[in-house]
Amino acid sequence: MRPEALWRPSASIAILKARAQLLAAIRAFFMQHGLLEVQTPILSAHATVDRHIDSFATRDGRWLQTSPEFAMKRLIAAGSGPIWQLAPVFRVDEQGRHHNPEFTMLEWYQPGYDHLRLMDEVEALLRHCGAPDCRYERLSYREAFVRHAGFDPFVLSAQQLRAQLGPAGIAEPEQLDAADLADRDFWLDLWMSQHISPRLGQDAPQFLYDFPASQAALARVRDGEPPLAERFELFWRGIELANGFHELSDAQEQRRRFLADQAWRAQQKRMVPPYDAHLVEALAAGFPDCAGVALGVDRLLMLLTGCARLEEVLAFAADRA
């Protein structure tokens, strides 16, 4: 293998022109739709405590954002109305064919919307940006499993989810501990990443919505049997492009989830950043009914331009940044 000169860009100049066009198209879309463009701090005293997202810590005890969501929701609580932002975000160790530790997030919030209505707007944005110009299928989390795995994800136990892997040809990870074995979400995630998501959005993009309540993250949970998280994701050619929520507005519940995630992190001996207390206060001060979504701009560009690897659309990927 011939070593490539590392001073050179990872992306071609033609792709960088396509990137500039995509950013212009996104900006035009939000101007047409009347959303306010905002900029919020990249560096914060707080960080996400999401179990599976690690933040970069800075020398002075602050944190690089993994998403601008907390600051944007504080603006919403302060009465900003609909807002959008293009933000650099950072996630430790996320490195691979479709990952780079630093990437560009498009995030927007629509007061008065729920997750279903926001899906319509995500679809409109993608069509505006050159993605397939048709109606994108909405598939519930349950329907996706029934269609592609042949079972209902809400009724199988952790053990049963595990037992089904072999027949589907999915390799079980090595070195699992007792907590993994008993964790339904661990096995659901494995099914999702190894088997279901690679089959989603093969023709046109597809939405996945109504997640298990245990995977609500910052979404509100709708009562029912089973209760469902009002959360959606968008997939195109097997790649996750966006994640949206009908936003949780209950300060007490938000605090409870932050504390539960911190406790899980402590028990797993992972770093435990301080959760965003300002967000909890903002929700307590009164947060309008609202939906929000985060979309990976680099991945969208990769798919629009037919590139196979994320680094092909980054001026300088992590190995040469």
Binding site: H99, E174, Q175, S193, E233
Partner: peptide
Amino acid sequence: YRKPGKGQATNTLKIRNLKTGRVLEKTLK
């Protein structure tokens, strides 16, 4: 590297046994 947005990431490794030459795949968290 595979990762569901909010879920557990895994790495699927293709590896060659240096004694036998056999190639296999293993997955780790």
